[in-house]
Design a protein around this nucleic acid. Structure first.
Lengths: 208, 208
DNA sequence: GTAATATGTTGACGCTGTCAAGATCTATGA
DNA sequence: TCATAGATCTTGACAGCGTCAACATATTAC
């Protein structure tokens, strides 16, 4: 050790945990989960391959921590739409659908991590992730209930089932887009409008 | 080589390609794509680790071949519903939705392979797979068009967009189920009925 | 029957996640 | 102040993965 304290050559990193999450998020965005390796990540950050294990039990815990960041960002965005006083109920519903799909289209890898099987299959989500993810899911149920009370969505249907169906719809459209089954992102707006009309408008201006 | 022709000890397998697809499908069903390795597969079939490479260019080609089988089975099932003369249009639509979700719920790993990002992302589907997958997708568009003509679905909407939305809906519900975000399979029927009412019934018996 | 081809094998390479053991820095408390 | 405990980072090692190259053996074609 020649340099006493060159900032790059310190034995201890300082805030490795945060650096790992940040760099990993960036690598995720560029190349997807399937190309995110702990070794490349450690290399990028400038530490040895096993250093991350002092901050995350295993790779899954790192992925959950990244997803947490995503949910936090995501939840703020959702709430921002729902609490915007300048929008009426139908506009909120429209903004919600467009916002949801846009987020997925603009952050496909993060969306995949947040809502994909890598984390959720086989219950590998950490408690910490569940603590932020579950309330987000529930927030969607709450919005659905409100829209039912407002007459925007049919009040006759069970709220939980209806919110599963509405969420399923936009989730499914998002997945078709980001998984490359419908690669053409130029139709996003039209698809959103069609979904909207299926859920809302067809009930108001009855098809004759 | 002691035995002249013990059926287990032959140098050439006989129909390795078929055996690989069959065994791989079984392993897929049990453990998912993420746990399907060529080496374990070869071991199971009783050949060396590189033998599969004489029948498939790489792992992706094997996966595509498996998915082809899935699509073939799947397409027959779809057509069986659609061409059943004992069902009226609404019953067909209902059977289609229930059949779709049931297939996904009963064959989650195959469904994931057929409609997931492993194959479709980055255009890794083989031509052979596309030849069977694309017509299946188009068959859904055709059904949607017919249901529009029958008045079951709104004729005012663009057929392609509408079929993307209806497919998106059941695809999304299927994914939520098989990815473990909604693990509770006991609600499948209720979710299907809710989706059905959103698409069809709400338009007929207008919510008052 | 011999040559070409199809199909199988072993060896090797670089990549991966992760464990164990040891090195080095930081913080605690006597 | 200084030893020591704990946090953090390192190298070494291992098994598993997909895949390539080189070689062996069986089948097919002329």
């Amino acid at each position: 050790m020649k340099d006493k304290k060159s900032p790059k050559a310190r034995y201890h990193h300082g805030d490795l945990r945060t650096s790992l999450i940040l760099t990993a998020s960036s690598m995720l965005k560029d190349n997807g989960v399937e190309n995110l390796s702990l070794r490349k990540l450690a290399d990028q950050v400038g530490v040895s391959r096993t250093a991350p294990y002092h901050h995350f039990k295993d790779k899954n815990e790192l992925l959950c921590a990244i997803a947490e960041q995503g949910f936090s960002h995501w939840k703020r965005q959702l709430e921002g739409i729902y609490e915007n006083p300048d929008l009426n109920e139908e506009q909120k519903f429209r903004a919600f659908i467009h916002g949801y799909i846009s987020y997925a289209a603009q952050n496909p890898e993060m969306y995949d991590l947040m809502f994909g099987r890598t984390i959720w299959k086989q219950n590998s989500a950490t408690d910490s992730l569940k603590d932020i993810a579950y309330p987000t899911f529930q927030f969607q149920v709450k919005m659905t209930r409100d829209w039912q009370h407002n007459g925007l969505l049919p009040a006759s249907l069970d709220t939980l089932r209806l919110s599963q169906v509405t969420w399923g719809t936009i989730h499914g459209i998002a997945r078709l887009l980001i998984d490359g089954i419908y690669a053409d992102a130029s139709h996003i707006d039209e698809m959103c409008e069609t979904a909207l009309r299926v859920f809302v408008l067809n009930r108001l201006e009855v098809d004759k």
